[in-house]
Design a protein around this nucleic acid. Structure first.
Lengths: 141, 141
DNA sequence: GTCCGTGCAAAGGATTTGCATAATC
DNA sequence: GATTATGCAAATCCTTTGCACGGAC
């Protein structure tokens, strides 16, 4: 029988990456985290709390590999630090609460279509896009 | 009669800022630049080419004051460095060419309305938003 | 003359990189 | 055993800050 770790391990192999403990643990956190969007520091803290730290250099390297492999998406919202989330191939956009930092996801097909249209109007070959709303979430109001 | 510099000088005063040479020169470049979105380094190079350099520290400070005063808008597209553009109070979004780095502006009222609607649906008090399309511009295709 | 602005150099945070060691296949 | 990953520390990039001097009002 396949343990949870075996499955994660296969995910890594399918992505063309060797299955190592730091990679497995990082992927596991990204999959199971209650909060979907994590910073490098979030991951670092989480890993350290599991009583076995992973160096920052490794976290950066692993995340970068995950992004290249398409396992993870990197976001650069406002501020300096990047945020990472699992890539589940379902595109969505974000609302970021300026008070508590919470990130809410949403998806609006009409907006998606209009974006494509605007790009076409400018003969712009769109490869990707990012839409982020900044404001105050309902719990912080 | 008012020279161009006098007008810029008044703009600064209206924004509550003393009129100094570095500020005037930076504002002038932002107003007259062929390219609308400039990085700190772009400004630094431009200022240096005018045979009188302005220190990076000052450029950062001045831009930050301009942003606070509402004269300028700061964008954090992908990559690390921020881009600055004059605030003409007309909101617009951006397309960024991944090859040549050109930034194209656009504005779509329908998208704007839909964004507001999505925010309302989530009881999210939207204060600002940013929409950026990434791809290849028509000249680079 | 007082107050604010600037330059310089040092500090800061996020991220990357070189190299020796350790793990995976 | 060969190849790839990791940790550590140093380096890099962008940006901010402390302090002494110079300019604006």
């Amino acid at each position: 029988m396949m343990t949870e770790m075996d499955i994660l391990s296969e995910d890594l192999n399918n992505a063309g990456l060797r299955s190592t403990l730091p990679r497995l643990r990082i992927l596991k956190i990204l999959e199971e985290s209650r909060v979907r969007h994590l910073s490098v520091e979030d991951l670092y803290d989480e890993l350290r709390q599991e009583n076995q730290a992973v160096s920052l250099a490794t976290i950066y390297r692993v995340l970068s590999q995950f992004v290249d492999a398409g396992l993870v998406v990197r976001h650069q919202f406002e501020g300096n630090k990047a945020m990472y989330e699992l890539n589940d191939d379902e595109h969505h956009d974000h609302m970021v609460c300026l008070k508590c930092g919470t990130v809410i996801e949403f998806m609006d097909q009409k907006i998606e279509v209009l974006q494509k249209q605007v790009a076409d109007d400018h003969e712009f070959e769109m490869q990707d896009h990012s839409l982020t709303l900044f404001g105050i979430c309902k719990f912080c109001q």
